[in-house]
Design a protein around this nucleic acid. Sequence first.
DNA 1: TTTTGTGAAATGATTCACAGCC
DNA 2: GGCTGTGAATCATTTCACAAAA
Lengths: 234, 234
Amino acid sequence: MSQQAVTVPPVPAARTRSRVRSEVPEATVARLPVYLRALSALADSGRTTVSSEALATASGVGSAKLRKDLSYLGSYGTRGVGYDVQELVLHISRALGLGQRWSVVLVGVGNLGQALAGYGGFDDRGFRIAALLDADPRRTGEVVAGLPIRPLADLDEVVRQEQVSIGVIATPASAAQEVCDRLVAAGVSSILNFAPTVLQVPQGVDVRRVDLSNELQILSFHEHRKAAAAGTAS
Amino acid sequence: MSQQAVTVPPVPAARTRSRVRSEVPEATVARLPVYLRALSALADSGRTTVSSEALATASGVGSAKLRKDLSYLGSYGTRGVGYDVQELVLHISRALGLGQRWSVVLVGVGNLGQALAGYGGFDDRGFRIAALLDADPRRTGEVVAGLPIRPLADLDEVVRQEQVSIGVIATPASAAQEVCDRLVAAGVSSILNFAPTVLQVPQGVDVRRVDLSNELQILSFHEHRKAAAAGTAS
DNA sequence: TTTTGTGAAATGATTCACAGCC
DNA sequence: GGCTGTGAATCATTTCACAAAA
């Protein structure tokens, strides 16, 4: 059937007043981090140059798609040779806005929130957890992954003082919309939502949703079809 | 900018030998779980019927899209009235293959694996964790979320005995491909991968990837663009 | 009168295939 | 000779807009 997945077009498409012309297609943006990761691995293994074919294979896509994706960023390859690994890392990083270190606030330090805080996927690549917040006052002060848990009331202060522009919601579904509203009110304009709810946000705010059971259900659909197909194998 | 995201077209498109004709578009499949969740909430709140407009709003999509999506499953609405909530839940569940209970094996019981095991998103909707496996022999026997951790060597036995067809990988990136190979060898044909790697799998195996730092980087891209746009506000 | 279901149009993404450059 | 960059063709998805059903 397929390959890697989970991150594409459910982003409904920008509806900005002034039609800003996004230049890089959304589907391409969603793949850039994958290329970046593959390139880092190549760099670590000592490769200095790579062909579209090789990088495409490592990223689980076709080489034509890869080349078209990269072409939106500019012409950084050399015909007959390939791409310079270091240089390409730089260009993709720049396109993704990874030149700066983004501060993130994580709300909801339960099971999942703790795992996220300790995951390493943050520092890993230019992100920094500015604070952990939790609504339960009994958790205040507890230290998780080296950071003290703070009360939700500190939200505005944290966002202002730490220049936070990305919020991660790892609360139960029932609290997610309210937390989201408060994040937006505090000035956060990008949200990563792990709670199984659809958040309502004003224009100009980006939300991405990660939902375990959604993913399982999509896999279930395909399993179901495969089983049915196998049964019909005349 | 946008709305909910994270689960769509990065699924490269089916490449099955015999061109099975998928009927329901991939993009639609990725949204069905969202509708299902919204419908459950409506049912809990006592609603018995819902219009495409209302359900669309609750799901973060447009009503035309919703109606077209549902039309791939059949004509289950009543003109002038809307959809019967219970009935629609049933039809979507059936389409997703949720009539049966799927058994899942979770490999890698670290930080994230533990959070997933305890998340509740499994039992929640027709999924059952058949076993927790971990490569570290020191963890064997430890009980997490009510289940004992078993050694990786038990994989084949678990898959066979428990009729497992879905595997969840929550190992470090370095171990993911090997675990994946063993899952596939054992007969698992759908994989949910939380490790930050692109898995290579044979045809007929579905992989979906969930990657925290990918999501953050996509948000970073949009933040970056918004900041640039704000700066250019002449 | 309301709201579905759906052809047809518009938009977006992928793939092809090859000219151009190293 | 090998490999990129990209128009043009294809395929997929979304949106429009309205006829038909309740």
